[in-house]
Amino acid sequence: MDALLSEDWLKQTVDLLVRLVELAGAVVIFVGAAVAFARFLVTAVRTRDAERFVPVRLNLGRFLALGLEFQLASDILRTAIAPTLREIGELAAIAAIRTALNYFLGREIKEERSELAKAAAAASGATSAAPPE
């Protein structure tokens, strides 16, 4: 039982979990970037309207925020095995940056979504206000 719950075993298990969660975050970010890249190119070929790119950016922002959540989870896991004060300080700085970024991304997503909703409402208002032919 002692061997099963030794400090080394715990360290290795947490290290493996950290790597897995970090990899999941990286995969989410990379897949989001790849999907957004393809959609940006298709939209750029099809239209010249800048508004059409907003939903694609919104989607990319969502992927980045989700990837960040995974990376934050790995930071939290890492605190379980950070032995020195210096490592904990570095971890705190990275977690602070990621938390701030997540906050700003969330705010941007909210702003852009409300702008899209406003534009959609204005467009539907203009259609209903137009006299029937």
């Binding site: 970090e22 970010i29 990379f30 890249f37 990319l60 980045l64 990376q71 971890l91 700085a93 970024l101």
Partner: peptide, 17 residues
């Protein structure tokens, strides 16, 4: 946005100062 994604991936690869 893409460069931010690159920065986040790099931060995952090498979490240094």
């Amino acid at each position: 946005d893409f460069w931010l994604a690159a920065g986040l991936l790099r931060l995952g690869a090498d979490p240094g100062w």
